[in-house]
């Protein structure tokens, strides 16, 4: 569905330099040697800190930016050459922008989109009925877009992007600013779309809940370069994410001694133990209970937020090579 081979995009930044009137031109590599393939039916999360090159990648995929070098193919087309033809086969949603017409009721925006994509009347009716049911559009179909809440507008935008039943849906921060209920509706909808219709989905987000809930595959880009590509479990392993056992003993005691287990913190009777990679938590607990009187136990996994924060800050070198 998507093939990117060694794609680079360089922008030239101009800025005034001190007293000189001449502007200095600095080339900036927004995307620097990105290679990946997305198969039909995949659900890919594309992560990266602000300014990492996510939006630039998306704009090259959809053809509104031309790569400086490298090869891009989407649905078999060269996006920058066949932008209009490609537009008929893909759907694009930007969380921060809207494709709907501000002054018209949502229903009218959708019929204009129908004309844009030349969707047959009958196909349109079926599709609109489906989308209306799944996205719960009915209550505000007749409301002018300017009066919609952000969550309603987002659902309207999703419907507009899917009326022509695209093979690929590209979402740029679709859940930004949404409340928990709206987020859940949108996520549930996307999961069904991918599972039942087989629509390939590429999503960028800063909301790691989207990733955990939806994406079987995660790609991370940092300063224009690919930093990780794999599933969530691989991301945890790659980032050296560990599990911690927090035990509360009957009385304060010196750090417990167990094979391969490191005590990272002692607070009175409470001790924090770091489990090594692949350790069996149950046997560690059993060993512990055999030697000490244990009041309470909690097992904690490093959250995805922490893992990604570490990666973005560069505290943690990713320990496995990028696979693609």
């Amino acid at each position: 569905m998507i093939e990117m081979t060694d794609v680079t995009k360089t922008f030239v930044l101009r800025r005034r330099n001190g007293r000189r009137l001449r502007r200095e031109r600095t080339p900036v590599r927004a995307v620097d040697g990105v290679t990946f393939t997305v198969e039909r039916g995949e659900f890919l999360g594309y992560l990266g800190p602000n300014g990492a090159g996510k939006s630039t990648t998306i704009k090259m995929l959809t053809g509104i930016l031309t790569p400086t070098s490298g090869r891009v193919r989407v649905a078999g087309l060269d996006p920058s050459r066949a932008r209009t033809a490609l537009a008929r086969r893909i759907g694009v949603v930007f969380g921060q922008r809207t494709t709907l017409w501000w002054d018209l009721p949502l229903r009218d925006s959708l019929t204009l989109v129908r004309r844009l994509y030349r969707v047959e009347e009958r196909a349109y009716r079926t599709r609109l009925a489906e989308l209306t049911a799944l996205l719960e559009l009915e209550p505000f179909l007749a409301t002018p877009v300017r009066q919609l809440s952000l969550g309603q507008r987002m659902r309207g935008d999703l419907a507009a992007a899917l009326l022509h039943d695209p093979e690929l849906l590209v979402l740029d921060e679709p859940t930004i600013g949404l409340d928990v209920v709206s987020k859940a509706t949108v996520r549930g909808f996307l999961a069904r779309l991918n599972a039942e219709r087989g629509t390939t989905i590429l999503l960028t987000t800063h909301d790691l809940g989207d990733i955990e809930r939806l994406c079987r595959r995660v790609m991370i880009i940092d300063r224009g370069r690919p930093a990780f590509d794999g599933d969530l479990a691989a991301l945890r392993r790659a980032a050296g994410a560990d599990r911690q056992l927090i035990v509360e003993l009957a009385a304060p005691s010196p750090p417990v001694e167990l094979d391969g287990v490191e005590v990272t913190l002692v607070e009175g009777p409470r001790q924090t133990l770091r489990l090594p990679d692949g350790a069996n938590a149950a046997s560690v607990v059993a060993a512990l209970a055999a030697r000490h009187e244990v009041r309470d136990i909690a097992l904690r996994e490093t959250g995805i937020e922490d893992i990604v924060a570490r990666l973005y800050r560069g505290d943690q070198e990713i320990s496995t090579p990028v696979t693609s």
């Binding site: 509104i64 537009a87 008929r88 694009v92």
Partner: peptide, 13 residues
């Protein structure tokens, strides 16, 4: 505002 990106994503001149 950059909203022109939306226009350019439409299958129309």
């Amino acid at each position: 505002s950059g909203d022109v990106a939306i226009d350019l994503h439409r299958p129309v001149d």
